[in-house]
Write a protein that binds this DNA or RNA. Sequence first.
DNA 1: TTTTGTCT
Length: 817
Amino acid sequence: MVNSQIQTENSQQQILIGKIQAIFFENSDNFYKVLQVKLLEADFTWPEEEIVVTGNFANLSEGEKYRFFGHLFEHPRYGKQFQAENYQTELPTQTTEIVNYLAGENFPGIGQKTAERIVKVFGTATLTKLQQDPASLSQLGLSKKQRQTLIDNLTNTGDQQQAVIELNRFGFGSQLTARIYEHFQKETLAVLHHQPYRLAFEINGIGFKRADRIAEQQQIAADDPQRLQAALYQSVYDLCHNTGDTYTSAPSVMQQAMDLLLRSRRVTLSEKQVADQLVTLAADGKIVVEKRRIYLRHYYEAEWKIAEQIKTLLQRPVKLPEKKVQAIDKLLTEIALQLKITYGAEQLQAIKTALKNRLLLITGGPGTGKTTIINGIVALFAAVHDLSLDANDYQTDEFPIVLAAPTGRAAKKMSETTGLPAVTIHRLLGLNGSDGQDNYQANENLTLASQLLIVDEMSMVDTSLFERLLAAVPTSMQLILVGDQDQLPSVGPGQVFADLLACEKLPQIRLEKIYRQKQSSTIISLAHAIKKGILPADFTKNQFDRSFIACSEHQVESAISQIILYAQKKKLNLNDVQVLAPMYRGQAGIDHLNVILQNLVNPKGTKTKELVANQQSFRIGDKVLHLVNSPENNVFNGDIGQIVGINLAQDNPQKPDQVIIDFDGNEVTYLRKDLTKIKLAYCVSIHKAQGSEFKLVILPLVNMFHRMLNRNLLYTAITRAKKMLILLGQKEAFQTAVDHVSVNRKTSLLERLSQALRVKQSQQSISLSQSSINHGQTSINEETTKYILTSQLIANEEIDPLIGMNGLKPIDFKHKN
DNA sequence: TTTTGTCT
């Protein structure tokens, strides 16, 4: 049915019937395939017996006949081929063919005799009959298994095939097609036709607009409730993800949703219509409205779950035998001797506290010895509990200490500094980040088995990830969270680490003393001042380790060029010099500076080998940044390397284009297709530089960056400098950055923590049932009428607490341990 | 209006 529709819709489409001889190429991640087909019939002329067919195909079998719909196409590299947009099995029509087909490898358990018996009954219509009316099989006296085989293969193939065809028709590429089918399976077609907005809710990478285009083709009206709800939900999601807040407000959502709806289809809708659907969304529990705050249900629950889980952890104190407690000081002295370290008072206290507490937060800026402390905690923990730190001793058992971080690079660094294995939190939890906007339920039953978990770079952990991490932490585990609360906040909504630290009831240690740099470093004192919101008076005055150059946005490139030339003259290793900027666009932006600096430091000579990809040229000697995690090569997002070799296919046709990059002694080969993973790195974004340090940092800030400028960004940038810091640009821009507090995202975590930790266990159920939170079962009707969220209330911003909670109580968010 | 993370 679908097929005939397409044929009439697209009269220019060409048709080809052929038998698959070989599947040349098959991408296991998606449905894309390249086939060699023996041509049987076609509505165009083709000089040869065989033809190459490409496209997205579900199940295909070699040796089978198919009908392809598509176009002839001239591929620049592989020549003329047939691009199929659509296809169907060319089912055998003659009885002998059908018998062979059924007796063939597609139908295990059906032999020649059985096949003959089936065809005898249904004749040439056998296959369509079985597809349309599988029940008719029961009259043939086949075994249950045989019947199932026939049904599965005939109908399943059809489902998947039709879904793939339909998805192609809506313009989905092979990646998305595979993901969508994997998610909805047999439901795919029904979802596409009747609930297209589910694509936006459930598939990562599909937003409201794309779903709306499909809906429009399905004649779903512009004021259809599912359309309005999808736009509202998307708006709450977008607002939270753009701001980093875990909730938003009704006026913001309404404005954003009205906008989105109007931009997607030019149909005017009334505010009332849309507001009514916001009420429905809340009533259905997809969003939660509380005290004028609108949450995605996921974030609402996550904040409660975090608070409840932390409370549960704190209720189980660590019990160390008295003998061990007395031995701690002695053991620490031994460890210090062994590691050849002299611990400061602050550090000793941090290590000892870590051992005695179920949960401990440790925050400190660069150079305050966080790494030293992590090493100390690991060593002391192992000594006190008589644990071996040799991975070989744990062939079958779980390693007792787990080190994890939110980014690949932070995990790699952790592993390097401790000598122990460290992983990303995602990998630890088995998160595969695949589907949808709230996939938090994945792996909910996972429980980690080790005794101690240390998480580094906590400032980059968002609400969602932390909730999932805590869900996997048993109360028998000790948890140490380490980070620098003044660095850039997490990508996703929330400011978990800052909120946790703000909760005074949580055991925490703030490291102030700087060990690494000399106390006289004026970079550090500048960082401290910025942290407090002050741009010191001596800011523009040159110091022995930093300086300021006033210049306009347009002068930035020449100023930086002069600094670099000077550094070169002074025989400074340019790998120790790093330019950092907040954004890519503009005259003083990263992209422009990279081109300028590349041509300055590594100009193209007549013989320079160069490879151009993604509008960038890569030359031997170039400094480059790796943009994704490639654990198989031990290279991670944010790693900086240098191009040490380029092989061009034009010089040596036997070999493909290759770029060899040296990452601190680790040489990795990139093919042309891998070049999307790298970028020039003469200048990198401050975000990307988080977690790295450089001897000399050059930081241009101009007013044009004003939207990006904030305190954490400036703090992060200048604390990347180990020895020297050169600031340039407009003084005003630096002032803007200092004035703009960044970690003030709107979240409820601190409130939840206070609530959860305030109530004593024994009183909890009583006090909660008395509060407005709990609508008891008996009074629910009366209560809900009182609490009904109306569009009027939205307009007046008079929303009562906890509408849409459906009687959920905080205690319901408690993890089962 | 801009930057940023993870996985198969």
